[in-house]
Nucleic acid binder design. Structure first.
Lengths: 192, 192
DNA sequence: CCCGGATAATGACATAAGTTAAAAAATCAA
DNA sequence: TTGATTTTTTAACTTATGTCATTATCCGGG
């Protein structure tokens, strides 16, 4: 269960974890299994935990006043779940986080995460690497949103995250791209 | 010149800087003045430096194959300039960073920034706080892009960054919102 | 294997936003 | 101040995308 996380930390940090450090990590992360359609976070709650996905899939989305869902982020194996905005500002979240398959998580609280960054250098380096990676990915997504047509954004997604097409239904891909499912369906027909 | 930066670090980190630390910081940041329309970074260059804006304004933008400019980010006093993607991945930047007024910067290299994070704890905390703030802001912007109409996005900008309307021409605001200047002009008329 | 619910595709139409071109207004420099 | 340049506004038209309704397809459970 924890093996995937150790692997992840070693790869990201470029450091080898000692047995001691592994125990520390095990003591701070709690395993949790969610069944398909269960929620990790609901709108209005403050996000006080983040989770490493060992196995499974999830989405983070909002619901607007017309009842439409907007997917801000997907999660798959070795990704993290949590609402950065709520987590960092301690404000009620505007989002839901729902797992789309039966999913195994390793959950850690804010406090434990801070402690762990101080106690295990590899973890601190990992978080820094994640922050960098996230800032790259989000900047790309913003650029895509303001400068590309829906078709170009879809192309981009197919190239960047081909696994999304296998794991998520088309209507959710459309929501992630910020277009209606009908538009995505038409685009796909035209492209083949 | 450095006073604004010291202030910024003390506020963000919640720590007081010693005279020693101030000297270290001064030794790593180089002051630089750019005149209106000069570039801090050009497309194709690798971004190896970031800069703190002491006084002035800037924009980071790309140019697509139709010659249209797309503004990804603005910069004002106490903000930072640099392309995260190029900076973190060491790839050639897809963006230009241009100052829009005569601008005073404090510039630091990647290497010096890393050293400084190790040597001055307040600086490390500041960078962490900045990363958090950035992840909040970018998540918000992504959500806005996929879930709001152009009009709602403009409203949001007016509330979140009212100073933008004073400092940047309307055509650049439109570019930042991902709409044509004509559309923004029409929206504004309708709203009054 | 068939049924029923979910997901995707399609068509007709409505609306939002882009494009092009021209005029009006604002800004800047001599 | 004035003339030149840039920015903004406006209008007519095109294109992209959304909406609503309907049909087709897929898929899992009996």
């Amino acid at each position: 269960m924890y093996e995937a996380l150790f692997q992840y930390i070693e790869t990201r940090s470029g450091l080898r974890l000692t047995d001691d450090e592994r125990s520390i990590i095990e003591s701070k992360f709690i395993p949790k299994r969610l069944l398909k359609r269960q929620y990790f976070l609901q709108e209005g709650d403050v996000c006080k935990k983040i989770a490493f996905i060992v196995k499974g899939a999830a989405r983070m989305f909002s619901i607007d006043d017309k009842g439409h869902e907007h997917i801000v982020r997907f999660g798959l194996e070795s990704w993290w779940l949590g609402d950065h905005e709520s987590f960092n500002l301690l404000t009620p979240s505007r989002y839901h986080i729902e797992v789309l398959e039966d999913t195994d998580l390793l959950v850690i609280t804010t406090v434990h995460a801070h402690e762990l960054r101080d106690e295990v250098r590899a973890f601190d380096l990992t978080v820094k690497a994640m922050d960098r990676q996230l800032s790259v990915a989000t900047q790309k997504r913003i650029h895509a949103a303001i400068s590309m047509t829906a078709e170009e954004r879809y192309d981009d997604l197919v190239n960047t995250y081909p696994q999304f097409l296998q794991r998520f239904p088309q209507s959710m891909i459309a929501s992630y791209l910020g277009i209606s499912p009908e538009t995505l369906s038409r685009m796909r027909r035209k492209m083949t």
